[in-house]
Design a protein around this nucleic acid. Structure first.
Lengths: 185, 185
DNA sequence: GGATAATAGTTATGCTGTATATCAAATTAG
DNA sequence: CTAATTTGATATACAGCATAACTATTATCC
């Protein structure tokens, strides 16, 4: 993943976007309104056109949450994708490499290097299946299980914190809606 | 950051819609239960560990919404980032190139090619400022305004459709929470 | 006023994430 | 048995996003 450190966060329209960190200042808005439509003045820009856009806010929120994740997981040296792989392997030990990849929507070619890295770090292992010698059964090592346990706790804490940040039942409502959105097609 | 590469089909427990995928599950479940926790059997994987994770669902939802956006904007040949640039220029005509970029969180070097492309397509124009000959004031051409108007309508329709897809006030609640999340840091 | 610093746009470049084509080995289907 | 399919892997390409550094211009300060 590429979570930078202090750099500004993207904010691209209903799309990619980097991050405008702050709302247009009150003064700037007044100035814009007073001059009609032309905003060739100085001061903050009018970004109101993006304010209520789901795609835009979704993207920004996702980046912010991933940055938060990156901070929390820095000590574990785990990127979100790596965590998700560890988690799915941990919950589905012995599954085929391609099954893990497919479950996470990762292309098989790209999953190879990811697993290589986890193996290099001694967190996961590929074992040749005896029944189907094409496939690799993937499992976590003891070290992998141990790291996953810590990671799960870390992640649970993030859920708690974000849940508190959003109000009362907000987290559940949010996740529910996000899951619905994720199935649009 | 990369939680995935293609949109995998989230495996959902109950509810509705299509999916005869549950069939093999029965046998698989029996087998799993009989072997305890090991899921090295066949059938769907257990992804329950990711189900309630905000970061994961956020990412998934964002990708799905972007895909929806891509379909809707295919005819306009506009990517989300391009739409956001057109929108911000349209709402802030005559601003400096770097101001537009900064507002969207786009690095100035990366913004050059984006503007080049919009200019090439006759949608935007750079004009040398007379007061500060270093800067370029950016505006939309008539064609750019025209395309933006269509794009705005397209985008508004997406909001309507997503709003309907989420229930009753769901869109507003969602955007509100996303905006809160976007400013965690 | 002239040296120095800062700003705006640009070019070059690199890393990460994700996609496709293709291959060899192994397995399955016809 | 032969052909098709599956699995893991390699090579490769492209988009997104970042930094360094150059040029032209403007601002600052002694």
């Amino acid at each position: 993943m590429s979570m930078r450190e202090t750099a500004p966060r993207p904010v691209e329209g209903a799309a990619k976007a980097r991050r405008p960190r702050r709302l247009p200042a009150r003064a700037a808005i007044d100035e814009i309104e007073e001059t009609g439509e032309t905003s060739a003045t100085s001061g903050d820009l009018d970004l109101s056109g993006l304010d209520g856009v789901i795609g835009y806010t979704l993207r920004r929120a996702q980046l912010a949450v991933f940055e938060d994740f990156a901070r929390r997981f820095a000590r574990l040296d785990l990127k979100p994708a790596q965590y998700s792989v560890l988690l799915v392997i941990g919950d589905n030990p012995g599954r085929k490499q391609s099954e893990i990849a497919a479950a996470l929507g990762i292309q098989r070619p790209n999953f190879v290097a990811m697993l290589d890295e986890l193996e290099r770090r001694g967190l996961a292992e590929r074992t040749r299946s005896t029944t189907d010698r094409r496939s690799h059964a993937v499992v976590l090592t003891d070290a992998g299980e141990k790291l996953l346990a810590i990671a799960r706790a870390e992640q649970a804490q993030q859920e708690i914190d974000l849940g508190a940040f959003l109000g009362d039942g907000g987290r559940e409502a949010l996740v529910g809606m996000l899951r619905r959105l994720a199935r649009i097609d």
